[in-house]
Simulated scan of single mutants.
Amino acid sequence: MNVDIILSAREIFPDRVANKTVVVIDVLRATSVMVTALANGAKSVIPVMHPEEAFNIKKELGEENVVLGGERDAVPIEGFDYGNSPFSYVPEVICDKTLVMTTTNGTRAILNSKGASKVIIGAFVNDVAIVKALEGEEEVVLVGSGSYDEFTMEDALCAGKLAMDLKEAYDARLTDVSVAMSLLYHTAKGDLHKIAAQGEHYSRLAGLGYDSDLDYCFRSSVFEIVPVFYGGSIVLENMNG
């Protein structure tokens, strides 16, 4: 197994993901929300680039079948049902519904990865399940969505943890950037929040009062599920056969 890391949505070029298994990570908070929604019974998650697309899908599928969620600059989008907090997507809200999402960074990273042989949705909340699911893969690329096309500390830490765990589990060969992010995680693992809080995006969310989200999104292995982007929708792996 070879493991590479890409550190922002802007750096996802076709030749870096073609014929490879990609894990898209947006710890704060898109992929954490997607994993949570599916674990709480969502039928699927549809990532889109623009709010207008989300409104159109809701009209097509029916108001009663769709929940709109997302953000721009960490703020909920006008006209959407919910923002980008995992606590919004409890079972009574999301069970048997389709979540249509657009976010500043995470949904773009997913859509930019369409050329991969497989796209998995990952975060700290399902990290252990992701490592198990990658057994036997030859080429893995961990994609940190970043923020405004720049590196973010939280995505780098999660990618570093996954790379380190893949090295330990399968003796994976790590690229230089994967080694560097693994070392970052190893240095920070005693207090991830202390390191991540030095990052701009974490600080912005803290300033907006999302302390509970920040605590939740750094919890390891909350769920044992592996969402996969398949045919335009994100579903649980065992649903696409």
Rank of each mutant, 00 (worst) to 15 (best):
A172V: 04
G232T: 11
A39C: 05
F223M: 09
V222F: 05
V177G: 00
T107Y: 03
L205I: 01
R219N: 13
V140R: 02
K59M: 08
G241Y: 10
F229T: 05
L162D: 02
C217E: 09
L38W: 02
A169K: 14
N238E: 15
K97M: 07
S88P: 04
G136R: 09
I77P: 12
P86H: 08
L99M: 13
K167H: 09
A206K: 15
M49Q: 13
A196C: 05
L236R: 11
Y148H: 15
Y82P: 11
G144P: 11
S233Q: 14
A123N: 12
M1V: 04
A163S: 15
V226H: 05
S220Y: 10
L7S: 12
I195D: 03
E139L: 10
G231N: 14
L7P: 00
E168H: 06
I120M: 12
G144L: 08
G83V: 05
K194R: 15
G122H: 07
S32V: 00
L61I: 00
G199F: 06
V22P: 08
A9G: 13
L192I: 10
V131I: 15
D4C: 03
G232H: 07
D165P: 03
Y89D: 10
H193R: 14
L208I: 03
G136A: 10
E64N: 13
F124V: 05
D127V: 10
A188W: 02
G106W: 01
I77N: 09
V22C: 14
P51V: 09
G69H: 07
E60H: 04
G79D: 13
A30W: 00
R219K: 15
T187D: 04
A42R: 07
D213P: 12
F223Y: 15
G241W: 06
I121S: 09
S85K: 06
A54Y: 04
A109I: 01
S145Q: 04
L68I: 07
T104F: 03
V179I: 15
V35K: 01
K59I: 11
F223D: 10
V177P: 00
L111H: 03
K58Q: 13
N65I: 00
M181Y: 06
G79N: 12
